[in-house]
Simulated scan of single mutants.
Amino acid sequence: MALGRTTRLPSLTGLRFVAAAAVVAQHSSLIWTRGHGENAVLLRLGFAAVTFFFLLSGFLLTWAWRPDQPVGIFWRRRVARILPSHLVTLALGVLLLAAAGRAVPLHAWLPNALLVQTWSPRFDLLDPGVNGVSWSLCCDLAFYLLFPVVARRAAAIRPERLRHWAAAAVAAVVLVPLLATAARPLLDGPPFGLAVTQRQIWFSYTFPPARMPEFLLGVVLARLVQEGRLDRVRSWHGALAFALLYPLDHVAPLMFGIAAITVLPLAALIAGTANADRLGRPSWLAHPVTERLGALSMALYLTHLLVIEHGDALLDPDGTADGLRPLLFTVVLVAGSLAAAWLLHLAVEEPMVRLLNEPRRARPAELRTRPAELRTVADHQRETP
């Protein structure tokens, strides 16, 4: 890999907050729909944000990958990034349900705790258990387990063939909804809505192998950027393409709106934003405040739905709020989500990352001979999601 390995990516960190905010907006629409489901326009925006995060995961892991890193250390660091925060929010969700007088059976929390719930076709996105957003961590865990093998294979791809592999990954993303449509007789069951069944949504949206092509595209995309083969791509190219395609995403069949329509604009957005950092182009996303908010994105993702669902039930138990009250509740609960994310990040995520994710302490002689290398390793660890 010729270029970009040691470059920090503050703009991509800032962009993570934008994507997390889209998910928060999607779930905040529950306050306005009074339990009748999320706003359809924001639902597709939330789909796009999840695709963005899966692409970004592959991109950043590849960007920071060092072939000499032991696999066990890599896995330990990845688990340290997600598992403590996940278990804390899961426990909080159980306590909140118990406080509301709702039973929390074993089958509702144990698969969630182990991050295996979405491997089963019985997983129901409409009733996902204690903390519904944690389904995506099942996919993240699968990506992490396979990444050391994927990274070595990706590093062996000749630069001139990277575009072919990227095209193959995009084709695989499009193939998923085609398979889910063709397999309707095998994926029959209770309706999800919009002419699809819950099992079709499970297969195309939450089943980890179905989301693997997006992650693999992110891996290849990182190599393309590192090799300087996408230098002309700017972040506004991806943003404009997304804006133009989003109306199509909204009217397309639901399963195609999950990732197939938006994956290329989002890939261009990631590549262009990474180029801004690598090539020294100015970007508002690299502002320290935006970068700091981006560092909260994982904690915000894990806490916001608990705050919104339980907070709305507390503020408006009868679902009768009207006038300006839904707007006021939205502002309060979004602010509460940010506060909860900050606490989770400060009290759980950062301490566990420091404990398990820091490089071994170098001897004084090593610090004198290779301080730049040690700083580079630390930067990589902070950038990786």
Rank of each mutant, 00 (worst) to 15 (best):
L137T: 05
L137M: 01
L137V: 04
C139T: 15
L141W: 14
A142M: 15
Y144I: 07
L145K: 02
L146N: 06
L146C: 14
V149I: 12
V150N: 03
R152D: 05
A154E: 05
A154I: 07
A154V: 12
A156M: 05
A156W: 00
A156Y: 03
E160N: 01
R161C: 01
R161Q: 05
L162T: 00
R163E: 07
H164A: 14
W165M: 01
W165N: 02
V173Y: 09
V174I: 12
P177V: 05
L178C: 07
L178R: 02
L179Y: 04
A180H: 06
A180F: 12
T181K: 00
A182G: 15
A182F: 08
A182S: 12
R184G: 10
R184I: 06
P185G: 03
P185R: 06
L186I: 06
D188H: 13
G189P: 12
G189I: 04
P191N: 08
F192R: 11
F192A: 14
A195V: 13
V196P: 12
Q198E: 14
Q198V: 11
Q198K: 15
Q198R: 14
Q200H: 08
Q200G: 12
I201H: 03
I201T: 11
F203V: 10
T206M: 04
T206L: 04
F207M: 09
P209W: 11
P209E: 09
A210Q: 10
M212H: 05
M212C: 06
P213L: 09
P213H: 11
E214L: 15
F215R: 03
L216C: 14
L216N: 11
G218W: 05
V219R: 00
A222V: 08
R223C: 11
L224K: 03
L224H: 03
Q226M: 13
Q226F: 07
G228F: 08
G228I: 10
G228T: 09
G228V: 04
L230F: 04
L230E: 00
L230T: 04
D231T: 14
D231H: 10
R232V: 06
R232F: 12
V233K: 08
S235L: 09
W236Y: 10
W236R: 14
H237V: 01
H237L: 02
L240V: 15
A241S: 04
A243E: 01
A243G: 02
A243L: 14
L244V: 15
L245P: 06
L245D: 06
P247K: 02
P247R: 04
L248R: 03
L248V: 13
D249Y: 02
H250Q: 13
H250G: 00
P253S: 10
